[in-house]
């Protein structure tokens, strides 16, 4: 697929790749076990992963791992996740992006506005899931009013979180070819960078002009 002499632009270093896939694995596990507890119709997911009693013990821990990974991501990425003027225009032209009308879009930096929105929505839902999850984890120590609120808010936050991740998985696999390689192997080719992230590409080119 790639020629040995092709130009490679580093996109995600090993630290970012590890933190992403740790988050992905813990999220996948928390989702399957959470869905099992969410609906009796999906209880078989929990049975496959060791049974209801087992997943009641492990689900909170997978949530803790995920929340820690979101914290690591926050430290690494938050500074670059603010929306600039181009991003704000970009968001109003989401339909152009969805219909491949890229000519109508302002140029994106290292992350486009959609990726930035995913980042902030994950930060928000993870905070909500973590807070309500701690309440549900230790019911015998928590006041009933908090437990009652958490029973409804935890799955509500999870619905938002899982939905945005479903879109994320689609974008990272089928919708944008080669983005999976960026997260698995860490690099992209110039053509990809120039098309998807022009401003970021220009920065790279400026620093690599020899």
């Amino acid at each position: 697929m790639t020629e040995p002499d092709e130009i490679r632009i580093p996109r995600f270093d090993a630290y970012e790749r590890v933190m992403h896939w740790m988050a992905a694995l813990s999220f996948g596990y928390a989702t399957l076990t959470g869905l099992a507890i969410w609906s009796p119709k999906l209880y078989w997911m929990g049975t496959m992963l060791g049974g209801g009693f087992h997943i009641r013990g492990t689900h909170p821990w997978s949530g803790v791992v995920f929340a820690v990974m979101i914290g690591v991501m926050f430290r690494r990425w938050a500074a670059g996740m603010g929306l600039d003027a181009d991003d704000r225009v970009w968001l109003t032209r989401l339909h152009n992006y969805a219909t491949h009308d890229h000519g109508a879009l302002p140029p994106s930096g290292r992350f486009n506005a959609g990726q930035k929105m995913l980042f902030w929505s994950q930060v928000a839902t993870t905070l909500a899931l973590f807070a309500t999850g701690m309440v549900l984890w230790f019911p015998e120590w928590m006041p009933r009013s908090l437990r009652l609120a958490s029973i409804a808010l935890h799955p509500l936050a999870a619905i938002g979180s899982i939905t945005s991740i479903l879109v994320h998985i689609y974008m990272g696999t089928a919708a944008v070819p080669q983005s999976m390689r960026a997260m698995l192997r860490g690099y992209v080719v110039p053509e990809w960078a120039r098309f998807h992230h022009p401003k970021w590409y220009r920065e790279w080119r400026a620093s690599h002009r020899s």
Partner: peptide, 9 residues
């Protein structure tokens, strides 16, 4: 029983 404690709530 999976011990989630939802019944208590």
């Amino acid at each position: 029983c999976i011990g989630c404690g939802y019944c208590i709530t």
